[in-house]
Simulated assay, not measured.
Amino acid sequence: MHNPDHNPWQITAEQEQYDNPWINVTEYKVINPAGNPGIYGKVHFKNLAIGVLPLDADMNTYLVGQFRFPLNQYSWEIPEGGGIIGVDPVESAKRELLEETGLKAGEWIELQRMHLSNSVSDELSITYLARDLQQFEAEPEETEQLVIKKVPFAEAYQMVCNGEITDSMSVGAILKAKLLMLEGKL
């Protein structure tokens, strides 16, 4: 019988390949589940990935557009950023929402937790639904050249369905919110 708590991978050696303030890359020499030797690379993220789906009283949301360096392309997504591990993630979500959109929310609901690329990394994301919104001044970081677009939630959902939004946290949050709407829970 399969035991889901049993790790079939054996590590025989490990070597750090790269380290910076955000990530660490380690190469492992392993014995794989079939009993054969191999290697496995792991990207360890030093922060949580935090995402916020703002939703106003008229069922509009706010998307952030920016050029994403790793993809070498423009991306529309929900407000996102890093959260320090050990700090309440909702506090990081509040900071990111204000930084990127200038919005503050009176109600916060955790939508989901998911691993973003479990084949090569341990990055954990937490997304929130932010309601009861008030507009203030945005405070983007120097690395961010952002365009904020207020759209009806239905349009954001169609952007996901049409492949115009491909960021995994954004896709997950928008689909989860749509499911909650269809179930009458939102």
Rank of each mutant, 00 (worst) to 15 (best):
L63I: 04
L55N: 05
L55V: 12
G51H: 03
H44Y: 14
T61A: 03
I50D: 10
L55A: 02
F69R: 14
Y62L: 03
N47T: 12
H44R: 13
A49E: 08
G41P: 01
Y40E: 10
Y40D: 08
M59C: 10
P70D: 11
L55Q: 04
P54C: 03
F45S: 05
P54T: 01
H44D: 09
V52F: 00
K46S: 09
Q73S: 11
F67H: 14
D58E: 14
V52R: 01
L53K: 03
L71P: 00
L53R: 03
Y62A: 02
H44V: 00
G41R: 15
G41C: 10
N72D: 14
S75V: 12
F69Q: 14
I39M: 12
Q73L: 06
V64G: 03
N47I: 00
L71D: 12
L53Y: 07
Q73A: 13
V64E: 08
V43Q: 09
N72M: 08
D56V: 00
N47K: 07
P70T: 07
V64N: 03
G41V: 11
V52K: 01
K42T: 06
G41W: 02
K42M: 14
N47W: 06
L63E: 05
Q73V: 01
R68D: 15
R68E: 15
T61W: 05
I50Q: 10
D56T: 01
A49N: 12
G51N: 03
S75K: 07
L48I: 02
S75Y: 05
T61K: 02
G51P: 04
N72E: 12
P54N: 02
I50F: 11
N60R: 04
N47D: 15
I39C: 07
L55C: 08
I39L: 13
Y40H: 15
F67C: 06
F67G: 05
K46D: 06
Y40T: 07
N60L: 03
N60F: 11
G41S: 13
